[in-house]
């Protein structure tokens, strides 16, 4: 009995370590300079000091450093010969070597993270939080409203509407993305607007309809009738009785829908311009622009993972419980 449990703990522990390994590798790779990416690192490699003998052009190529930003920062006007080393630059333009070092060194040593930051990571993160937050909140509210009307299938049209939402499962996103784009831009005038992605997320579908309708159906109908007897209208029932009871189904909905919405790639990619990309599209775009700057690509991936993992860990009890509970209901 005891030994059997120990073996289980051992095996599951091992699997957990394996599960964590890619995360660990990602952190290491996010700080491993691209030039060292053919070497194996078990731990973050030492930061090498910036050599003043490095040529500006090489630095710009390897570390994707923006030469124009460098010129502006240093107050250099006109063309700079990329073949010059940093030491020669300092001499030519009478710059303090320390000043050059101070600006360039972090960009070389923490190239990945800084490149991603400069590519607009924070803006993309805020956009993602905004889109996901609004989508989960409004989507949940709309789902609860839908559920409160449909629960119990008291009329034939309730069941019909429910089945319409189930139909959503069978519509491949790829198939409708173009007509959707046309409706968003031509009909609703939501060109390059976060609202378009939000609308897609909150339009309702199998998950929210199923979760809320089936949960509301388990609430005794006497509660609603009791409000009716007491002279309350439907909105009294909705706000005073129903909403306060929606904690559990909302947790189930949020814990499944939040990762979907956060990680949605297709719709932001199609509806938004690169300057407005949410994180997955942003990360995909980094993969496209910094094709061989692995440090930047993996930094981007790491940074994009941190917020959602934090959310997950803060609410992990809710996620875990919802995962099992949602599964039981099917």
């Amino acid at each position: 009995m005891k030994r059997h449990q120990l073996v289980l703990v051992g095996l599951l522990g091992l699997y957990c370590l394996i599960t964590l390994a890619p995360f660990y590798a990602l952190v290491v790779r996010a700080f491993t300079p691209t030039v060292q990416s053919t070497e194996f690192h078990l731990w973050l490699p030492d930061r090498r000091p910036l050599s003043m003998n490095a040529r500006l052009g090489d630095l710009a190529t390897i570390y994707s450093i923006d030469a124009r930003a460098f010129r502006q920062e240093m107050g250099i006007k006109g063309y700079v010969n990329p073949q010059l080393t940093l030491a020669q630059l300092a001499e030519t333009y009478e710059l303090e070597p320390e000043r050059i070092r101070a600006w360039l060194e972090p960009r070389v040593q923490y190239n990945g993270v800084l490149s991603v930051m400069e590519a607009g990571f924070l803006r993309s993160l805020l956009a993602t939080i905004f889109v996901t937050g609004v989508s989960v909140g409004v989507g949940g509210l709309l789902g609860i409203m839908t559920g409160s009307a449909l629960a119990g299938f008291r009329r034939p049209w309730h069941l019909f509407t429910y089945n319409l939402y189930m139909l959503n499962m069978i519509i491949p996103p790829m198939m409708v993305i173009l007509p959707q784009y046309l409706i968003m831009t031509k009909v609703l005038g939501l060109d390059d607007n976060y609202l378009s992605v939000i609308l897609i997320h909150i339009k309702g579908g199998a998950l929210s309809t199923m979760v809320f309708t089936s949960y509301i159906a388990t609430i005794p109908k006497e509660l609603r009738e009791s409000v009716q007897m007491d002279g309350g209208r439907h909105y009294h029932y909705f706000f005073y009785v129903l909403l306060p009871l929606m904690g559990t189904p909302f947790a189930v909905f949020a814990s499944i829908a939040m990762p979907w919405m956060w990680n949605d790639l297709l719709h932001p990619l199609v509806f938004l311009s690169p300057a407005k990309y949410t994180l997955p599209a942003f990360v995909a775009a980094i993969g496209g622009t910094y094709t061989t700057n692995y440090e930047a690509i993996f930094s981007g991936l790491m940074l994009s993972l941190i917020p959602i993992l934090l959310i997950y860990l803060v609410f992990q009890k809710m996620f875990v419980r919802s995962a099992v509970a949602g599964a039981v209901k099917g």
Binding site: P220, E222, L223, E225, S226, V227, Q228, M229, D230, G231, G232, Y240, V241, P244, L245
Partner: peptide, 29 residues
Amino acid sequence: EPVERGCAMVFQNYALYPHQTVRRNMAFP
């Protein structure tokens, strides 16, 4: 509507609002 008929009802499962205290349950009507 029910309320206009001047009736009050006690249900078999009581239909108390589960998230409200006794006081708020009684005050609701």
